[in-house]
Design a protein around this nucleic acid. Structure first.
Lengths: 219, 219
DNA sequence: CTCAAATTGTCATGAGCTGACACTTGTCGT
DNA sequence: ACGACAAGTGTCAGCTCATGACAATTTGAG
């Protein structure tokens, strides 16, 4: 237990080679994601089986499940990264900024980045996911579940920023929920009316504007 | 197609006998729900298999799936009825009332009714569902999926009430989303901090207050 | 009573997912 | 180098959920 030089996890501050093993693992993982999206685009999410994905990469389906907890997982990998990006962006906002302003800027900023493919997000895959969400309840369910977890994280961050305790103060819960609502409303509108609402970032920005101004009972 | 005397659903306004067949079906359904909740309370949601539920009522598991599309379904039956109640309550609000006021009154009213067991909601089962939601991701996922559908319905109703077209106006989407957010924030707070937030109706009411007043960027 | 429709049981099948165990391959200390 | 140990993988066996097909049963109607 002197050096523990391998560090299975991601922490490994090793500046040196991540090792051949790690690289191989990463390649397998990438190959699985890639093969999965090729098949998804071809035959749809439901019609694609885990075995097909695994076969395409020439690994056993058992191995697939060592990389991803479920078939849905492989389709939603980007959400994890996206969450990371949102958290990082939110934490980097000036501390004296009103919370809703910070949230709005953060979410709109990430949306814009996604649109431009500025982060590691392939717009094609993104679109593929959106269409799959529409006709695969199972995928939608998993996605919503992750969104929920994301919201819990946001609640904690917001509470810290406001300097209140989420155990006794309802505000961080409501604000996190509202922020999600802004995003969801936009996603919802775009899913059902793709002609009217075209730009993610713009739609989200509009949604936040309504949230901030239009919710007190003056119609 | 003259009389359609059987009416599989629940509507059956037939003053006469709905028929022994219908009654039997209803009894089987009720028995399944009842047995399911007994087992859920005993062993938890995940550890309970469909076969056990079916065996407890002495039907085949195949039959179970003719009544419920999934194991999750049987645990979430009440959501359907709850949605009906919310819709009915919302539609009965005065048309000139501000939309947020109407939503707030509706949701708080339903919550209060649930607490008092005024509708057909068994508080014990309700609590059972809440605890199961906390430790069964699959159930949570299905629940969230249903919530999403509920929100789509709310969007349409709100749009109609506001006299706008949801295809071109973002407001009904945002307002429906926000209303859900109010409810979710409350549920979230109660799940994580059951000591502080005790009453559903009160917590929801607080959440709406924050939504209405506290969202414009004045901290 | 008899027939037709609805309901259910039985059987078979497929997909998702997991545990156990053995085998291969990468990694590290000496 | 070499050998020990850990990590990754394949194989197999099995469980649970879910669905289609068909036969047997029950119910309702004439």
């Amino acid at each position: 237990m002197t050096a523990t030089a391998h560090e299975t996890g991601a922490s490994g501050p090793e500046p040196q080679s991540p090792g051949r093993r790690e690289r191989k693992k990463q390649r397998t993982r990438d190959a699985l994601v890639s093969a999965a999206f090729t098949l998804f685009a071809e035959k749809g999410f439901d019609a694609t089986t885990v075995e097909e994905i695994a076969d395409a990469v020439d690994v056993s389906s058992r191995t697939f499940f060592r990389y991803f907890a479920s078939k849905e997982d492989v389709a939603l990998t980007f959400q994890e990264e996206q969450t990371q990006a949102v958290v990082a962006a939110l934490l980097s906002r000036p501390a004296d900024e009103p919370i809703m302003t910070a949230l709005r800027a953060t979410v709109v900023g990430i949306a814009r980045a996604c649109e431009n493919g500025e982060l590691g997000f392939d717009p094609d895959r993104f679109e593929c996911v959106l269409s799959m969400l529409s006709d695969s309840p199972a995928l939608m369910a998993k996605s919503l579940e992750r969104t929920q977890k994301k919201q819990n994280l946001m609640t904690r961050i917001i509470a810290q920023r406001l300097g209140v305790d989420p155990a006794t103060d309802l505000r961080p819960h409501v604000i996190a929920s509202a922020a999600m609502a802004g995003f969801n409303a936009a996603a919802d509108a775009m899913r059902h009316h793709p002609e009217t609402f075209v730009s993610v970032s713009e739609t989200v920005d509009q949604a936040f504007a309504i949230l901030e101004e239009g919710l007190n009972p003056d119609h």
